[in-house]
Design a protein around this nucleic acid. Structure first.
Lengths: 122, 122
DNA sequence: CAGGATCCCAAATGATACTG
DNA sequence: CAGTATCATTTGGGATCCTG
């Protein structure tokens, strides 16, 4: 697998307008997949726990409804970011965790947090 | 100004569940500001040009309407990401460009592109 | 416990025509 | 050229009640 350009190369290419060649906005598909009011918060919660249950997510996301949480989880699963494991015990429960595809989002969240930190007083 | 933790520290903190302490999902405010069907595409276009005109944006974003483009630009301006400069010549035109706040989004876009590159064949 | 099924509403998006 | 104004439509989000 070929290496992706470094950030310095990226900046250089942007400066010269070369990045456009990479395609029609390669950022878009991911950003579309992350749209929806709760998805990024859910992913953030998953950053914090190796594995997390439906009920815990609901408790940690104040205001979310069953419907919204279920929909968001289903879509995140369909997009391959998270993994769902069902335990048919008594009482039954479900555990959600990152796939590798999902875990690879961490650098993005890191940069977003970094931005937030730098501009928190703007 | 205090330095933000390194990515290695970030991963370590995530692993230990410490990142939560930083606040209630510091990623959220930014992600909310970037919501809307066209905003990230517009910002991407701005990455490519130091300054870009309304008409050029409209041409490069196939399918966008005047209304949507105007709304998105107004909101991006209100959130401090872009700068609007009006030239009252004949014919009149308007140039949009990044503020520093907007330019600081570049590392995020870089990581998003990197993710897209890694997972383009998933 | 972890949802599924409905129904409803507000907001986001969009098409079209017009203007400083 | 760079928008406004208006109206129509789609979609996301949510409340409530029900179930394997």
């Amino acid at each position: 697998m070929q290496e992706f350009m470094s950030y310095e190369e990226f900046l250089e290419n942007v400066k010269e307008g070369i990045v456009t060649e990479l395609g029609n906005c390669p950022t878009t598909p991911l950003l579309i997949m992350l749209q929806g009011k709760w998805k990024t918060q859910i992913l953030y919660e998953l950053c914090m726990h190796d594995s997390v249950r439906f009920g815990v997510l609901k408790k940690n996301l104040p205001g979310i409804t069953n419907t919204m949480l279920t929909n968001a989880l289903r879509e995140l699963e369909a997009d391959g970011f998270i993994h769902r494991e069902q335990f048919n015990e008594i009482p039954p429960h479900v555990e959600y965790s990152f796939t590798q595809r999902g875990r690879d989002l961490l650098p993005i969240f890191y940069e977003i947090m970094k931005w937030g930190f730098k501009h928190e007083n703007d």
